[in-house]
Amino acid sequence: MKTYKLTAFDASGEKLLDEAFQAENDHVAKEKGEKLLREKDLIEKTHRCTSSSGKLILFHP
């Protein structure tokens, strides 16, 4: 399992979400990240999900 970091921001730059989670691979991590954002109603906010190696998995400006 790899560790991934999901962050979301509002328009002012305030961090709304900063959460780490585990996933088997990048594809599963992307799905988990999108699910978390939908659950917290943050899918339309600026967000990113990165792997522990720094790879960008998910991004929305």
Results as ranks from 00 to 15, higher is better:
residue 60 H to V: 05
residue 38 R to V: 10
residue 39 E to K: 14
residue 22 Q to D: 13
residue 50 T to Y: 05
residue 26 D to S: 09
residue 43 I to Q: 10
residue 34 E to D: 08
residue 16 L to F: 04
residue 36 L to N: 04
residue 23 A to K: 07
residue 12 S to T: 12
residue 38 R to A: 15
residue 29 A to C: 09
residue 56 L to R: 10
residue 9 F to N: 02
residue 29 A to N: 03
residue 2 K to M: 12
residue 33 G to F: 00
residue 19 E to Q: 12
residue 34 E to W: 02
residue 28 V to G: 03
residue 44 E to F: 08
residue 51 S to A: 15
residue 12 S to H: 10
residue 8 A to L: 02
residue 25 N to G: 08
residue 18 D to W: 01
residue 52 S to Y: 03
residue 26 D to L: 07
residue 59 F to R: 09
residue 50 T to E: 12
residue 16 L to I: 05
residue 28 V to T: 14
residue 23 A to R: 07
residue 41 D to A: 15
residue 40 K to H: 13
residue 59 F to H: 14
residue 50 T to C: 08
residue 10 D to N: 15
residue 22 Q to E: 15
residue 4 Y to P: 02
residue 35 K to V: 04
residue 26 D to E: 14
residue 43 I to F: 08
residue 2 K to Q: 14
residue 15 K to P: 04
residue 43 I to V: 11
residue 49 C to E: 01
residue 38 R to W: 02
residue 61 P to L: 09
residue 35 K to T: 11
residue 33 G to S: 11
residue 34 E to G: 03
residue 61 P to Q: 11
residue 30 K to C: 09
residue 49 C to I: 08
residue 17 L to M: 13
residue 43 I to T: 06
residue 41 D to S: 15
residue 43 I to Y: 06
residue 7 T to S: 09
residue 61 P to R: 09
residue 51 S to N: 07
residue 58 L to E: 05
residue 21 F to I: 03
residue 12 S to Y: 09
residue 23 A to M: 09
residue 14 E to W: 06
residue 39 E to D: 15
residue 57 I to D: 02
residue 17 L to Q: 01
residue 2 K to V: 00
residue 59 F to S: 13
residue 11 A to K: 04
residue 31 E to D: 14
residue 61 P to Y: 06
residue 20 A to L: 08
residue 11 A to H: 04
residue 59 F to Q: 13
residue 24 E to G: 13
residue 22 Q to I: 10
residue 53 S to K: 13
residue 1 M to D: 13
residue 60 H to L: 11
residue 47 H to Y: 00
residue 50 T to N: 06
residue 34 E to A: 07
residue 46 T to E: 13
residue 8 A to F: 04
residue 44 E to V: 05
residue 57 I to A: 01
residue 28 V to S: 14
residue 46 T to G: 09
residue 22 Q to S: 13
residue 51 S to E: 05
residue 57 I to H: 02
residue 22 Q to P: 04
residue 48 R to T: 06
residue 2 K to R: 14
residue 53 S to N: 13
residue 1 M to V: 12
residue 57 I to Q: 00
residue 40 K to E: 10
residue 39 E to T: 10
residue 11 A to E: 07
residue 49 C to W: 01
residue 4 Y to T: 00
residue 57 I to C: 01
residue 10 D to A: 05
residue 57 I to F: 00
residue 57 I to E: 01
residue 56 L to Q: 10
residue 52 S to H: 09
residue 14 E to Q: 14
residue 51 S to M: 05
residue 57 I to V: 07
residue 43 I to K: 07
residue 9 F to L: 06
residue 27 H to K: 15
residue 53 S to Q: 14
